[in-house]
Amino acid sequence: MADLKKLAEEIVGLTLLEAQELKNILKDEYGIEPAAGGAVMVAGPAAAAEAAEEKPNSTSF
Rank of each mutant, 00 (worst) to 15 (best):
M1F: 06
M1T: 08
M1P: 02
M1N: 11
M1H: 13
M1D: 14
A2L: 12
A2V: 05
A2G: 03
A2R: 15
D3N: 07
L4V: 08
L4Q: 13
K5T: 05
K5G: 03
K6A: 13
K6T: 12
L7S: 14
L7T: 07
A8H: 13
E9L: 06
E9A: 03
E9H: 12
E10D: 08
E10M: 07
E10T: 05
I11L: 12
V12K: 15
V12L: 10
V12C: 07
V12E: 08
G13Y: 01
G13E: 03
G13S: 12
G13L: 01
G13C: 05
L14N: 00
L14P: 13
L16H: 08
L16A: 12
L16R: 09
L17K: 10
L17H: 14
E18Y: 05
E18N: 02
A19Q: 03
A19E: 02
A19I: 02
Q20C: 03
Q20E: 12
E21Y: 10
E21Q: 06
E21F: 15
L22F: 12
L22Y: 02
L22M: 08
K23Q: 09
K23T: 10
K23I: 06
N24K: 12
L26G: 01
L26N: 00
L26F: 02
L26V: 01
L26D: 00
K27Y: 04
K27S: 06
K27C: 05
K27Q: 10
K27N: 07
D28Q: 14
D28V: 03
D28H: 02
E29P: 01
E29I: 01
Y30T: 08
Y30V: 02
Y30N: 15
Y30H: 13
Y30L: 14
Y30W: 04
G31E: 14
I32M: 15
I32T: 06
I32V: 13
E33Q: 02
P34F: 09
P34V: 04
A35W: 04
A35C: 14
A35G: 06
A35S: 06
A36G: 09
G37A: 05
G37C: 05
G37E: 04
G37P: 01
A39D: 06
A39W: 08
A39P: 01
A39I: 07
V40M: 15
V40S: 15
M41R: 08
M41E: 10
M41N: 14
V42A: 08
V42S: 11
V42L: 10
V42E: 03
G44S: 04
G44C: 02
G44L: 03
P45Y: 12
P45W: 09
P45C: 05
A46H: 02
A47W: 00
A47S: 03
A48E: 12
A48D: 13
A49R: 14
A49I: 03
A49Q: 07
A49D: 08
E50N: 04
A51Q: 09
A52Q: 11
A52F: 00
A52L: 00
A52S: 12
E53N: 14
E53C: 02
E53I: 01
E53R: 15
E54T: 02
E54G: 05
K55P: 00
K55Y: 15
K55N: 14
P56K: 15
N57G: 06
N57S: 07
S58M: 14
T59K: 13
T59V: 13
T59Q: 11
T59A: 09
S60M: 03
